[in-house]
Amino acid sequence: MMLYFAWVREAIGADQETLTPPPTVETVADLLDWLAARSPNHAAALADRTAIRVALDQDFAQADTPIGTAQEVAIFPPITGG
């Protein structure tokens, strides 16, 4: 399950998608590359990787973090709470 928040959600045009990446997608960076190729909206949302944050099963992940067996992948901008 992919979850999108804030302007990533708006740019992609959905708050979630159920997708199964191919086995070649091993890390967070691989996943973002694979997602960006899905549609022009995905490409636009993920164009600036410095403005993208990813959580795997609700824990922050880095570009080189393996996706492993994560069931819930969330993609969002840097947080602005408080």
């Binding site: 928040f5 804030a6 302007w7 959580a55 922050f60 969330a74 969002f76 901008p77 840097p78 947080i79 602005t80 709470g81 408080g82």
Partner: peptide
Amino acid sequence: LMDWLKTKAPFWKAEEGPWGTRWVRAKATD
């Protein structure tokens, strides 16, 4: 708690005003 909350709690702010609606950018100072 406030300093960590600002960088770890997944909240996003959208501002309404004369500009319409815009997402707040994260601050490096946080």
